[in-house]
Computed example of a mutant assay.
Amino acid sequence: MLPAAEIEKVVVEEWCAILETPDHHLDDEFFALGGNSLMAVEFVANVERRLGFAFPFEALFVEGTLGSVIEACRGADAEAS
């Protein structure tokens, strides 16, 4: 199981990179910030590659906030362990 801070760091870095924004807030919504389905696929692939476990893709479509994505990744990591 990865440390929660490491998961958050990776998700935030990939979020900011794909959305081309230096700023982030936990209540930011992926699609409201200009994200689209192709960017979502790239974001998920990058997060999965860096964290080493399957990312809950639907997390981007249910709430779609940065905070909800981080929490979904933490849950996926716990399940994978």
Rank of each mutant, 00 (worst) to 15 (best):
L2W: 13
E6K: 15
K9I: 05
K9Y: 09
V11C: 12
E13T: 14
E13D: 15
E14L: 03
C16G: 02
A17I: 07
E20W: 06
T21K: 13
T21F: 08
P22E: 10
H24F: 14
H25P: 01
L26C: 07
L26M: 13
L26S: 10
D28N: 09
E29F: 04
F30I: 09
F31N: 06
F31W: 00
F31G: 00
G35Q: 09
N36K: 07
S37E: 14
L38I: 15
A40W: 05
V41Y: 06
E42S: 11
F43P: 02
A45M: 14
V47N: 03
R50K: 14
L51N: 01
L51T: 05
F53G: 02
F53L: 08
A54E: 15
P56G: 05
E58A: 12
A59F: 06
A59Q: 05
A59T: 07
F61T: 02
V62Q: 04
E63T: 07
G64I: 09
T65W: 01
L66V: 03
G67N: 08
I70W: 04
I70Q: 02
E71F: 04
C73G: 06
R74D: 00
R74H: 11
G75H: 10
G75N: 13
G75Q: 15
A78V: 12
A80S: 11
S81A: 15
S81R: 14
S81P: 01
